[in-house]
């Protein structure tokens, strides 16, 4: 049976991992490939790297980490952050990533999804959506790092993104991000009800039950988290044991 995926997320700036200073059992936790390998060994099913390098001219160099990660780990990984053009896809995939995630640029130019899916296949194209609740049971798509309300309904955008060829949807809840009170189950449910591609929950994980709730109640295909893994509040192994005991199919 297809298992649910546990996905640690790493922010990378200028080729270095931003969070994760609290690791003391690996030597240089700022190296994306070392931290990536560590998570892979711990049982992560997949990794996501967001390149948050601010300046554009440094980006080319910054993405060198993708190549190092590809050499070091043998599980799939996705790279996102600032992806704007088909050339960005080409560069990231050529360096060895399995998937590329697009966010703001896809909202501004939805054809980017279509073009990328036709060129590289749906499985390479991940649509990452920053969602914020704007009214009772209404969520809007926000762009530019969550600063700009596009007025677009999240569920509609997810549906459209799939129609254009996105092979996976990552739903980041701006409201829940960093709150550690759990994923936005209502929002996730609306999306898993309507799309026919894998959906990944992001934003809000604080304890093991939160992962279970998203996987069970919202029936997402994967759960993404950063700080609970980086600060070792939850280990991937104990999380997987917990989920398995509760009847969720995971790869152990």
């Amino acid at each position: 049976m297809l298992t649910k995926r546990i996905i640690p997320c790493l922010d990378v700036r200028n080729g270095r991992v931003v969070k994760g200073k609290k690791f003391d059992d690996i030597i240089d936790v700022e190296d994306p490939e070392i931290l990536g390998k560590y998570y892979s060994d711990m049982g992560a099913d997949e990794l996501v790297f967001y390149d948050i390098t601010a300046s554009n001219e440094k980006r080319g160099i910054s993405l060198d980490f993708v190549e190092k990660v590809a050499k070091k780990i043998n599980i799939p990984f996705c790279v996102g952050g600032g992806v704007k053009t088909i050339d960005d896809f080409v560069e990231i995939l050529r360096k060895g990533a399995d998937k590329v995630s697009v966010n703001s640029a896809a909202v501004k130019n939805p054809d980017l999804i279509k073009e990328a899916a036709e060129k590289f296949g749906n499985q390479c194209v991940v649509l990452s959506i920053d969602a914020k609740k704007t009214d009772a049971n209404i969520w809007h798509v926000f762009i530019n790092g969550g600063r700009t309300d596009t007025g677009i309904d999240v569920v509609e955008w997810a549906k459209r993104g799939c129609g254009l060829g996105a092979g996976e949807i990552v739903v980041n809840s701006i409201d829940e991000d960093g709150m550690k009170k759990g994923y936005d189950i209502e929002l996730l449910k609306r999306i898993t009800d309507i799309v026919n591609v894998p959906v990944i929950a992001s934003g809000g994980a604080g304890e093991m039950k939160h992962f279970y709730d998203a996987l069970k109640e919202a029936d997402v295909d994967g759960v993404l988290a950063a700080s609970v893994f980086h600060y070792k509040e939850i280990s991937i192994k104990e999380l997987k044991d917990y989920l398995k005991n509760k009847g969720i199919e995971v790869r152990i």
Partner: peptide, 10 residues
Amino acid sequence: KKIPHMGWNN
């Protein structure tokens, strides 16, 4: 089923 079949299977 969701397509693509993407992830770890036995």
